[in-house]
Simulated assay, not measured.
Amino acid sequence: MDYSLAAVKMLCSQLRDAKPTPSQNATALGGVLFQRAWLQGVLVPISGGGDNSLVLDDGTGLVELGLSGDFAIRQWKSGMYVMVVGVYHIRTGDIPLLKVNMKTLGL
Rank of each mutant, 00 (worst) to 15 (best):
V85G: 08
K77Q: 15
T27M: 14
R36Y: 08
L105V: 05
V42C: 07
V63Q: 03
L11V: 00
Q14G: 07
M102I: 14
P45S: 11
Y3A: 07
V32Q: 11
G41C: 13
Q75D: 14
V84G: 02
V55G: 01
T92R: 14
S53T: 11
A7C: 06
P96T: 03
V82W: 00
P96Q: 06
L62I: 09
Y88V: 10
A28Q: 11
K19R: 15
A72L: 10
G49K: 05
T104D: 08
P20W: 00
F71C: 08
V84S: 06
I90L: 11
L67V: 07
P45M: 04
M1C: 05
C12A: 15
T104G: 13
E64Y: 01
V44W: 09
V82M: 07
G66E: 13
K99N: 14
G61P: 13
K9G: 03
G79V: 03
D70N: 12
G86M: 13
G48C: 06
L33E: 14
G49P: 06
G79R: 06
M102R: 15
N52Q: 12
F34C: 12
I46T: 13
G93P: 13
D2E: 09
G66W: 12
H89A: 03
V84E: 06
T60W: 07
G86V: 08
V87H: 05
V55T: 14
D51P: 06
G49T: 08
P20D: 10
S68Q: 10
M10Y: 01
S78P: 08
G61Q: 09
A7G: 02
Y3K: 10
M10F: 01
A7M: 01
N101P: 09
K19Q: 14
G30V: 02
T60D: 06
W38V: 00
I90E: 07
L97Q: 06
L67H: 10
S68C: 05
P22V: 14
T92H: 13
D51C: 00
W76N: 06
S78W: 01
Q40F: 00
V42L: 05
G69E: 03
S53K: 08
W38G: 00
Y88E: 03
A26K: 10
G50Q: 13
R36W: 01
G66T: 05
T92W: 01
L15G: 04
G41N: 12
A7L: 05
I95R: 14
V8H: 06
N52C: 04
M10H: 01
A72R: 15
S23G: 10
S4D: 11
D94P: 02
D2S: 04
P20A: 03
A6F: 03
G61F: 08
A7Q: 02
A6D: 11
G48M: 06
V84M: 15
T27I: 03
G106D: 07
G86Q: 08
E64T: 12
M102V: 14
A28K: 08
K103V: 12
T104V: 14
K19F: 01
M80G: 09
P45K: 07
W76D: 02
L39V: 11
S47N: 12
M80P: 10
R16I: 04
L65S: 07
K77D: 09
V32L: 08
R36S: 03
A37L: 12
